[in-house]
Design a protein around this nucleic acid. Sequence first.
DNA 1: CTCATATTTTAGAATGTACTTATATAAGTC
DNA 2: GACTTATATAAGTACATTCTAAAATATGAG
Lengths: 109, 109
Amino acid sequence: MHAFDVLGDPVRRRILELLADGEHSAGEVAAVVQDEFGVTQSAVSQHLKVLRDAGFATARVDGSRRIYAIEAAPMQAVDAWLDRFRGFWGHRLEALATEVARGKKRRGD
Amino acid sequence: MHAFDVLGDPVRRRILELLADGEHSAGEVAAVVQDEFGVTQSAVSQHLKVLRDAGFATARVDGSRRIYAIEAAPMQAVDAWLDRFRGFWGHRLEALATEVARGKKRRGD
DNA sequence: CTCATATTTTAGAATGTACTTATATAAGTC
DNA sequence: GACTTATATAAGTACATTCTAAAATATGAG
C-alpha cells in the first residue's frame, strides 16, 4: 500500500497524531479512536497493522501489551515528494532559506 | 474527497507532477498518462475532474481545449499537516532554521 | 489449570473508487 | 451543414478498502 493511501484514512491519520506525541499501547490508541470515531477495537487493530506493514509504525511487545511507536521514513518520503511543489506556496522555511542565502552573500560568509 | 485520498492515486500524482512543470491542456496530460499508465482518455478526464473538485487544479477554456493549472492550497494543507511530524526526521530546512536561530543568538541580531 | 485481559486474525458484508464503453457537447475546418 | 477534434459525462462493472462479529493467540493472576 502506497504511503499516500495509508494517509488517506482519517483513523490512521489520527493514530499517527497520537503516536507523534509518544509511544502508546494498542489499547490506549484503540480507546481514543473508539471514542472519537465509534469503531470497534478490531478495526483499530487492523489499522495498526496497515501502519506496521507500510512502515509508519513499529510495535514492541511488553507483557501482554503491544507498544506502538511512530516511524519517520515513509512520512519523510511523502514530504520529499512535496518538495517539487513547495515553490508554489512560498513555504515559510524555504523563504527563510532564501533570506539566509541573501544574508550570507551580503556578509560574505 | 480528502486531500490525502486525492493524492492516493498514482495517476493523479503524475498529473500533478506534470502540472507542476507548467500549464497543460487536458489532451497533453491525457497523452502522457495514457502512454505511461495505459488508461483511456475518459479515465484521465475523470481524474482531472477529481483534481478540480478537490481544488488541486483549475481549468480555463481556450478554444476547444481546456488548459489546466496547478493550485497550491490543498497541497499546502497536506504540508501543514506534516509539520507535527517533522521533528522525527531532522528536516533539512528545520535544521537550517535551528542553525539560523543559534547564529542570531550568538551575534545578538 | 482456569479465567480474565490485551491484541490479532479471519470471514463476510457494505461501500467506494477507478476503470471501460458509449454518448454528449462544444469548437474548429471545409 | 457535415465532419473532425477536444473534452466531458453517464452507465455499468470490477476490485479494493473498511467495517463488524466471531474466533484465535498470548500473557498474567489466582
